[in-house]
Amino acid sequence: MIAKNPDSQNSVHFKIKRQDGPDKPAYWQTFDVPYKPNLNVISCLQAIAANPTTSEGQETTVVVWDCNCLEEVCGACTMVINGTARQSCSALIDQMREQGFGSRENPIVLEPMTKFPVVRDLWVDRSRMFKQLLRLKAWVPIDGTHKLGAGPKESPEMQDERYQLSRCMTCGCCLEACPQYLKDNHFIGANAIGQTLYFNEHETGKNLQGERLDVMMEPGGISDCGNAQNCVKVCPKEVPLTLAIAKVGRQVTVHAIKKFFMGK
């Protein structure tokens, strides 16, 4: 239906950027995977793992990738697919074939994210994001030895806003698409700003608001945002990242003025 060529119709063609180790050079290989309905990129990578042979018929090593939940809630399988960062589990082959990808002339291109160090092939080390969350104290401080009683009440409006922020899975799409977040700079990135707002708006979490905003004022903090707003457009969980950036911007403005007049 899509093409007369039976070969094109019966296999999905991939072009994959390979890298044997963190400091090894990158190279490209192509693979053909037999077509079946309802494939996704992960199941194709599984098929390649079962039969690691390139399109030219050459035996090669298994393509390595990271994944976990297979239902777009963990973020581990994020990679650059046809030039855009997204999860490979929710990248459906039937949809991509409809868009014209997967043929021999126009293969599905898989690359590791460029903003994180490559571990191997499509597997990257996303630990910079987790370190930033630690730095921001992205948690609600309730540890102690005594009983704290019932928690404070939260309005339905705030619940709704915070629920949207809570959907962030630290996948890294927002950072991959951000022109200000680079492998070798200090920018904290959109996801961390979203989590700052998430915990600053929690009735108990706001106890640490000042400390979080101090981090936001440091080099690499919120003022390195360039308002390109790619983050909110690529976010697979539709986290309102630009709202978070503007709200934390406002919190930082107030915090800085308070510090100027009342701080030590």
């Binding site: 030039g83 022109p179 200000q180 680079l182 707003q229």
Partner: peptide, 16 residues
């Protein structure tokens, strides 16, 4: 401090 990427992400805001 930034690196333009309009080629991959050609949103109007990114062009802006």
């Amino acid at each position: 401090t930034g690196k333009a990427n309009v080629k991959c992400y050609s949103y109007m805001d990114n062009v802006r």
